[in-house]
Design a protein around this nucleic acid. Structure first.
Lengths: 220, 220, 220, 220
DNA sequence: GATGAATGAGGCTTCATTCAT
DNA sequence: TATGAATGAAGCCTCATTCAT
């Protein structure tokens, strides 16, 4: 008996299971938005339930409490960005192009996922205690570090890149340049009285960052 | 007249004023610590009073409410860093040295004032609404931008620096490289399983950042 | 036909019934423990299901709600003690020995069934409303009262017992002396700083109670 | 300046202090009633506030949480009964009269303070953990034990009492006989179909208990 | 200036119970 | 018979804030 043949019938077992999964995802997405907008302390369980369109009690059914929910949101966010990173085929590009692509990817991902930045902030405000409790923390290690190491090594062997560059340091610098600009965007705008998110400003920022990275890495 | 000589007497007017000032500073310092550790949402007025060793009611007496108090803390923090920046006499140094000095200063200030980073995060989580409400926001404009502009211009005229460098972009990059490393220190440590705050690691980070900035700015 | 020989077959009707009975007993035992440990207000339906290793919904299937379940537990407990009492063949003993045996039985039963004491407490906290609702309340009348009446009468006729002893009053006194000692054991221990449940202490208590009862009943 | 001279004046400092005290007593009394009627698990903080006519928050201001409040109620109840016991001048009476007076006092106190019985039950349901946490538990030791010891010794020396009676055992028996009758009154009434609290029934119970105690203690 | 007492709103969480197979 | 998913009501407790000297 296929699904189409049952009319007015109750969902089959497999479907009910999927309902549970769907509820969990819905909650997770709602929580992600709430936490991103208001931080762990400012988030409200009531509002998360409302955003999810589900009963508040269900949140506790699937995720024990607020802290656990936050941890689940964090893990999901990490899984998401790592998934995106895996699709970056940097090793097919020439070293300099690969670096440009990496800078651009980081920049675009942060731009498209502003919630990732605030979640990261919240996590660090709480001293990453949520990550430490996560057994999966290590799995969250970015594949980019290894890719970056290979790119740098290849560039050095080609003679175009300088040697002695620590890939982790460079990765952090690349991330930091995008991150600070976007994360502190409001403060910077207020202080400098300049909109930093116009199309032009964004293009200029990206160009600047590429220039910095390549200026550093490229052999004079 | 020392205080000990007056028995059962009410404090003199001037002394009362000094007490008032001292109370305010005490509250501000306590609030800064609390906000830095727990964010705006996680901070507790009770705890701030306790940290200050003063009655909670007094906080409301001096600072209308929690938001206003947070704003006051933010402004004070900005005043503090701007004050420190004013003592940086970069223009006395040669351009390359001035840049190194600027990177080092930023790095050291963030290291020594971790609360500044978390306050900044909190402010940005709330979209800098506290800054916008502050009449003094513009006064918070860093003098460093102007200094940096002059340094870059001088280096360019000397022929050692490349041209076309936007001082604001560079300033943000410098700040971002330190900021991300320190602010996300916990997350990074958890993920990469590497203590990023040992003396050696700190030295390496500083060297890396100087290399990046100078690598970018110096004419090949 | 053993169960193992039927593969993928639905259980036979008789077996289903046995399962049903077993489930009900399991629930009842789990509920008894939970109620005994935590009282009616402190007991949790979730925990009862967990203790029983059965789905919570099943509890509602067999016992309408928490109150009804409590009532069922109470009735079962009464049935249990009445059953034990029925095996006491006091009338075969001489009057004084029969009294000693009764005191000892009461004491031992309470010692061995501490849950009975707390259930009784809970029932009385709720003014025995669960008993009043029970159609079987009267059936719970202890056969001991009648036995005790006969013992007292026989002792009196023999000339060894005093007359005018109300069997119900004596029954309550016997029960009360054991009950208070055991039920308030924790409080008494805390206050008097003396472990009341060592083997020696228990023996002393039993001796004391027999002395009291016989001292009262025996003709000088 | 006496109180009467101030009209329309705000309460003086000493009075405000008393307000705090009064609030605490009011809460304590309301809590005692609620706990007595419904047990620890069944009591509701909301209802306690309502009974006290005070803001619920104030309960938490003075008594950290429900458990602490319960502990405070327990301690107060013990203080009350110990206070009453102190006014019993048993040593002025002849030994047999002193015993009768003690039985009567216990019976009357329990009759007049039914909440004491249920509080005791609740405390024991929770294994007296609230008492153990109380630093004052030992102070709650009844002065009656010592008095009873003296009465028994005096009776023995006079030749009217038997020897070898443990005052603690006797105290527990006296308390238990009253306690069980009253505490399980509802259950007993339901089972035996007999109202145990009529004036006549109460008189009979008291007579019975005196008979038991004296029958035991008096030398044949 | 300083403080202990008091409060209303709301937050997180738990509970008994029902739904829908 | 048995069960995982879902829910509304309510419970304990906390929070920022105000009252009343």
């Amino acid at each position: 008996m296929t699904r189409g043949t049952r009319l007015h019938a109750a969902p089959a077992a497999e479907e009910r299971v999927r309902d549970a999964d769907r509820s969990q995802s819905t909650i997770l997405a709602a929580a992600r938005d709430e936490f991103a907008e208001l931080g762990l302390g400012g988030a409200r369980m009531d509002r998360i339930a409302e955003r999810a369109g589900l009963n508040k009690r269900l949140i506790y059914y699937y995720f024990q409490d607020k802290e656990t929910l936050f941890q689940a949101v964090l893990e999901q966010s990490y899984r998401d960005i790592r998934e995106a990173e895996r699709h970056l085929n940097l090793l097919e590009l020439r070293p300099a192009d690969a670096l440009r692509r990496l800078v651009e990817f980081t920049w675009s991902y942060y731009l498209d996922h502003p919630e990732f930045l605030t979640l990261l902030n919240s996590a660090n405000l709480h001293k990453a205690r949520h990550l430490e409790q996560s057994r999966r923390a290590r799995e969250l290690n970015s594949p980019l570090i290894e890719m970056l190491a290979q790119i740098l090594e290849r560039g050095r062997r080609e003679g175009s890149f300088r040697g002695g560059v620590d890939p982790l340091q460079l990765y952090i610098s690349i991330a930091g340049m995008s991150y600070f600009y976007l994360s502190n965007n409001h403060t910077l705008s207020a202080i400098f009285g300049r909109d930093l998110l116009t199309a032009k400003a964004r293009q200029e920022r990206l160009t600047h960052m590429c220039d910095v990275v390549l200026g550093y890495v490229l052999r004079g």
